[in-house]
Design a protein around this nucleic acid. Structure first.
Length: 799
DNA sequence: GAACAGATGGTTTTT
DNA sequence: CCATCTGTTC
């Protein structure tokens, strides 16, 4: 039967879907045995997962609604859903075609006719937990509300009573938290304390920490008790108010499965397929194994230990590495089978050789990989004559200019001609090749450094590149590059809203109502002032009327409402104020980045509608008008001004093809692009200790320290201790750049600053193949008395 | 090779 | 603001 399935694939979906021997083995493997597929980058692991799901339907006669496929990001989940339908429907149609039906068993035909390909259960684990818990809610139960990160942190600070805890426990509390802060310094503000408490209590849940043991050691006992108290306060508030954060959502789901009170949708689960298993944390592993045990579902997991990037969310490679033993111990029954996928169909041989050598570069990294190491990735595509490239300049300014020229030549000019470096030219794809085929990957997408000691924020490569490309008529897409509050159009829009509801006066430049409010941070007040300035400057240009209305008319209308309660309606959603100014800020309708910003502002207002006193409404009634405006400022405007609201660029189903994309390496996981630019050192001009953690850590990261300190009170803990916290900090950087280097299909370009390439440089950098023992294979012995200027063993060609 | 003056840069990732 | 880097000079 599996053989016929594979023949069917090729016949219906074409030779492209003809699986190679490795993929074939994964598809043929019986569902009765748990399966671990170890699959390197570009080897078609998602394809195999989707086809294995379809095999379960078409060969094993499992209805799609009994098959669950989870993955790690919503983007990847959409991809899986699309492929299931794109391939599943033609396969079903082909089997049900008249000439085929006559050759099939009648009961099989009947089964096939009942199959609805749309009913596979797919999504991220969180989305499936949320949907299935919601769907199985009893009529007398409250609706389930999953809260956003920023709302959750506000609740943690207030309901967890972080301030009270810090008062009670004093310096011991701050010192304990300081161990897990970025700087190692004790936090001073409630906000900073809350952020650190958040990482600790999330780990309680994700690592299934035994709280009694957490409180057992003699050291930091007082501080640990305080953390536990905050955790209890916060948890109780969430539970009594019917709200959940992400960890609680998963925990609640697990508890139901453990109690064998499985949500209806999943009660008849027969096949469970998990993508990106290397990023699973102990809680999630528990969910998958418990679900498989409870339902008897067939379990298949796919992953690549070298691409595990989410340690900070509790992910730990040991769960993947030891899957066979762990699943076997938990489930009993047949011992899981391990299969490998090593044939890469994504990248050119040059690129594959590069990332293979990167993975094998540091002998110390070997013991972080699964043993025996999986076979090296094998290339299958022909060379395109383009070696791995490097573009390094003295500073980010120069780099931005030359990189913009390089990209512009390819996507707007005649391409980069062949020369001594390139045996073939680099050109955009013949059919519709555009900037959307390229991406800049870096560890952060932030376009500015943080302002420091009164010094303004400095632009990074991303901002300089945005400017240089704009000068060449090309726009970027990087909505997360700046804080929402700092974006020009957002500042203008929100400034207009403030001026409409709470106009600045000579005596109160930040508005009369705001002046009378407490609980607004200075950061927020400053932002409000900036926004008002942006609005004032815009108004001073006397924008032309739109549809016979002037912007001043709109402003006056709202001011009349705010001051005197004049207006057509008894209540207005605060967003209506914003929408009334839209005609004068057309970017909010046309520009994809601004659409993302608008969604974030709207989402903030929607959140406020659930908890704010006036539910983000402006009330005309005299007794409530001022209070409702102040509530809107406090609960909608202030969170944006405090930079607590995160943008969600995934609301854009597709970014326009003429935009140049900037992404973090984390975001690029699972994606591929024809041309990938990896920023390896645009921020690193000197060996500054402040940035060592991003390139060559000398101290363990706060995440690995927390792993160490919880090792004794979590079942997974001891397994992690096989490697030191510092070793684990290193391997995280190796994996990060391994993911970056394995994204491109045709061209990989490394960019950075020259100082880190000098023969005698002190700027060690794991991305540039430095090993943990401080040796650097990019330098070779030299002849003569003086060392060469640049490293003399570069694995790429310099542009 | 030491000692000094002037330049340099500033803390990430997220369902 | 301060630790560290880079270049110059003896």
């Amino acid at each position: 039967m599996p053989t016929e399935f594979i023949q069917l694939l090729v016949r219906v979906l074409g030779a492209d879907r003809d699986p190679n021997p490795g993929q074939r083995a994964c598809l043929e493997q019986d569902l009765g045995v748990p399966l671990l597929i170890v699959a390197g980058p570009g080897t078609g692991k998602t394809t195999v997962l989707v086809l294995r799901a379809l095999r379960a339907v078409l060969v094993d006669r499992v209805p799609p609604e009994c098959i669950m496929i989870t993955t790690f990001t919503r983007k990847a989940a959409n991809e899986i859903r699309t492929r299931l339908i794109e391939w599943g429907i033609p396969l079903q149609d082909s089997l049900l075609a008249p000439d085929s039906v006559s050759r099939l068993a009648p009961d099989y035909v009947e089964f096939l006719r009942g199959v609805d390909i749309n009913r596979f259960i797919t999504g991220t684990l969180d989305s499936i937990c949320e949907e299935s818990l919601t769907a199985s809610r009893l009529p007398n139960e409250r609706p389930l509300v999953v809260i956003e990160t920023f709302a959750a942190n506000q609740l943690l600070a207030r309901r967890g009573e972080v301030f009270a805890a810090s008062r009670r426990t004093g310096q011991a509390f701050a010192d304990y938290l300081g161990r897990y802060s970025l700087t190692g310094d004790p936090p001073t503000t409630v906000g900073d304390m809350t952020r650190i408490v958040r990482t600790i209590i999330d780990r309680f849940v994700q690592d299934e920490v035994d709280i009694d043991q957490y409180l057992a050691p003699g050291t930091d006992l007082e501080a640990r008790r305080a953390v536990k108290q905050i955790f209890d306060n916060y948890r109780n508030h969430l539970v009594t108010s019917g709200q959940m954060d992400f960890p609680l959502l998963e925990k609640t789901f697990l508890d139901r499965v453990v109690a064998r009170n499985i949500p209806d949708r999943l009660a008849d689960l027969r096949v469970l397929l998990v993508d990106e298993y290397q990023d699973t944390n102990p809680l999630q592993e528990h969910i998958y194994l418990e679900l498989a045990r409870a339902t008897g579902a067939s379990l298949t997991v796919v992953g690549d230990d070298d691409q595990s990037l989410y340690r900070f969310r509790g992910a730990t490679i040991e769960l993947f590495r030891d899957f066979v033993a762990r699943a076997s111990a938990f489930l009993g029954g047949a011992v899981p089978r391990t299969l490998y996928l090593t044939e890469n169909y994504r990248s050119t041989p040059e690129i594959i050789a590069f990332f293979n050598s990167f993975a094998q570069n540091d002998p110390d990294f070997l013991s972080a990989r699964i043993q025996p190491p999986k076979p090296a990735i094998v290339d299958n595509l022909p060379s395109n004559g383009v070696p791995v490239l490097g573009l390094f300049r003295d500073d980010a300014d120069e780099l931005a200019v030359d990189l913009a020229d390089f990209l512009n030549a390819i996507f707007r000019g005649g391409g980069r001609p062949a020369d001594t470096l390139l045996s073939e030219s680099i050109e955009r794809g013949r059919a519709g090749g555009d900037f959307g085929d390229a991406v800049l990957l870096s560890s952060t997408v932030s376009e500015f450094t943080r302002p420091f000691m009164g010094r303004p924020a400095r632009p990074r490569l991303a901002w300089r590149l945005r400017t240089e490309l704009a000068a060449r008529g090309v726009q970027c897409f990087n909505p997360r590059g700046r804080a929402l509050k700092d974006v020009e159009q957002v500042a203008l829009m929100l400034g207009l809203v403030l001026e409409a509801l709470d106009p600045s006066t000579a005596s109160e430049p930040n508005g009369l109502l705001i002046a009378g409010m407490t609980g607004i941070t200075n950061v927020a007040r400053n932002a409000f002032r900036e926004w008002r300035n942006a609005a004032a400057q815009f108004l001073a240009t006397r924008p032309p009327p739109v549809n016979n209305k002037t912007i001043a008319d709109v402003l006056v209308r709202w001011r009349n409402f705010a001051a005197a309660g004049r207006g057509a309606s008894n209540e207005w959603p605060v967003l209506d104020v914003l929408y009334s100014f839209m005609p004068w800020v057309p970017a909010f309708q046309d520009d994809p980045e601004c659409q993302v910003y608008l969604e974030a502002i709207s989402r903030c207002a929607a959140e406020a509608a659930t908890y704010s006193a006036y539910r983000a409404l402006l009330i005309r009634h005299d007794r409530h008008r001022t209070l409702s405006i102040q509530a809107a400022i406090r609960d909608v405007m202030a969170p944006i001004a405090d930079d607590l609201v995160e943008v969600d660029e995934e609301i854009m189903s597709s970014v326009p093809r003429d935009r140049f994309n900037l992404m973090t390496i984390h975001q690029a996981k699972g994606l591929e692009f024809p041309l990938v630019v990896v920023d390896v050192s645009s921020d690193f001009k000197i060996n500054s200790p402040a940035q060592k953690f991003r390139r060559f850590p000398e101290d363990p990261s706060s995440v690995t320290l927390l792993e160490d300190d919880l090792a004794a009170c979590t079942p997974i803990g001891q397994l992690r201790m096989a490697r030191s916290a510092l070793q684990r900090s290193f391997e995280d950087i190796v994996r990060l750049y391994y993911v970056a280097y394995s994204r491109p299909q045709s061209v990989l370009l490394l960019v950075g600053c020259i100082p880190g390439l000098r023969y005698t440089t002190q700027i060690k950098n794991v991305a540039k193949f430095w090993r943990a023992d401080s040796t650097w294979p990019w330098i070779r012995p030299y002849a003569g008395r003086r060392p060469p200027t640049l490293a003399n063993n570069l694995p790429f060609n310099m542009l």
